[in-house]
Design a protein around this nucleic acid. Structure first.
Lengths: 254, 254
DNA sequence: CGGCGTTTTGACAGGCTTCAAGGGCCGTGG
DNA sequence: CCACGGCCCTTGAAGCCTGTCAAAACGCCG
């Protein structure tokens, strides 16, 4: 399996929040000393999971709140007969399990696409965070609002876009997300997903996803091989996808 | 067709927050006196819009934050060629425009289905709310997380459910939402929507939506006439829809 | 080399869309 | 009082986009 490398913290058993690899990214805002201090105590520990493992399971209760430190994963829902819908992909900096912290149980599952490192926060201290660190609370709201943007666009794709538009749209979105946190450049990105994942995210069958993707490749708009994607003509892709780039402003973080 | 109306609030007899019709509902939690006091000042005024008017327009900036006091509306996105996807329906107690408060611009529109009364909050005081009233901040987070539940299920429908499953699922969902705030009982509810709205929410064509709905009616599972829906066999509907009821716990509110 | 997961292709079926037209309901106006 | 127009709902027919079935090619790894 492909792994996402984060050399700076590769062999650390427990990253100090001071040296958090996430915070170091230019995409996130700076913490004040008191905030940093709180976060250090809010955090219970770290978790490392292997590619393919289930991080969160639909229906589970009493889960904690997690933050992705490294690695890719995806949220999904399953129907009784096995049909699966991928809701979105979670990258470093994303929050996981907030639902479980606010409601009785989780209504979706999360699966790791690569080896992942997760920061674990105590769900019972979420209230303390809101009470004592409003700026962090606002950051959480910001993250959830941002995710809603993604879900809104995803719904529009599933409901009203053609297969070709959906594929083009998702490829651009994935590149954009990866680039934002420095996992891509030169229009090239390593995506740890199979075409089956694309299909489940797009609401299409595997076969049709393949044919559509191949079509875009044949048109010379994108390269897709060995878990690596390269955008060859992002402008034309965007053109036939109705893609609307999302807000790029600095991003807060717990 | 769609016009933005911003009637002056001056002539309206402003509802005192103390007697807020939303808070009176058993579905919402009680406010503490200080919270009530803050909300009173957070609120700038009320707005009344007529059925069919556009409450929020995609791309608009510097919008305020709204809360629905009465009436139905829906959030939607449009594609360049006119295709429309309804993202969800907003009922009394729902928040509108949080995105616009956190980001540069709105990425979806909102249209009123009935006459509506909206409570207007100052977007620039959102930070004060988080700073001084963490419980209210948590309430906002709760509302957005809850909306995410709805979007997740909607995505699953659009991506992986058949037309029949989608229709059955949406009807149950709409009834559930209406019942929750006392707008429905005896399995009967007045839905101010046309089949075109159903179609746009389900990602189906109007024709196919009609045929599918008619099929459910012919099966004796539901009644649909004159903007009124009655669930005749909710169990069987749920059975063929893969419906999962959402959390029913008391609901917070700004 | 063999096994397995992934990608690719072809053929066919079908669910859903599109096109088209008629019917019902209701407010408006002659 | 009835005709008329505008929505909305309904129904039929034809066609296409996408799903399903099947099988082969490919690539990686033990």
């Amino acid at each position: 399996m492909n792994k996402i490398e984060h050399p700076s913290c590769a062999d650390l058993t427990q990253t100090s929040c001071d040296a958090c690899p996430i915070r170091a990214s230019a995409a996130f805002r700076e913490f004040s000393p008191p905030e940093l201090d709180f976060v250090r105590h809010f955090k219970i520990g770290e978790m490392r999971v292997t590619a393919g493992s289930t991080v969160l399971l639909e229906g589970a209760e009493t889960e904690n709140l997690y933050t992705v430190l490294s690695g890719w994963s995806f949220r999904y829902k399953s129907l009784a007969d096995g049909r699966r819908q991928i809701l979105n992909f979670a990258l470093p900096g994303d929050l996981l399990g907030l639902q479980a912290s606010l409601f009785e149980a989780l209504h979706h599952s999360v699966e790791a696409l690569t080896e992942m490192r997760l920061c674990i926060f105590r769900r019972d201290r979420l209230w303390a965070l809101y009470r004592d660190h409003p700026r962090l609370a606002l950051d959480i709201t910001w993250l959830t609002a941002r995710q809603e943007l993604v879900l809104d666009d995803g719904m529009t794709s599933l409901g009203r876009r053609t297969a070709r538009e959906r594929v083009a749209n998702l490829l651009l979105h994935l590149y954009s997300r990866a680039e934002e946190i420095g996992l891509a450049d030169e229009n090239e990105v390593e995506l740890p997903i199979t075409q089956q994942h694309l299909a489940d995210a797009l609401g299409l069958s595997l076969v049709h996803t393949n044919k559509t993707l191949r079509h875009l490749v044949d048109l010379g708009l994108v390269h897709w091989k060995n878990r690596t994607m390269k955008l060859l003509d992002a402008a034309r892709l965007a053109d036939l996808s109705g893609y609307e780039p999302t807000d790029k402003r600095p991003r807060p973080f717990i």
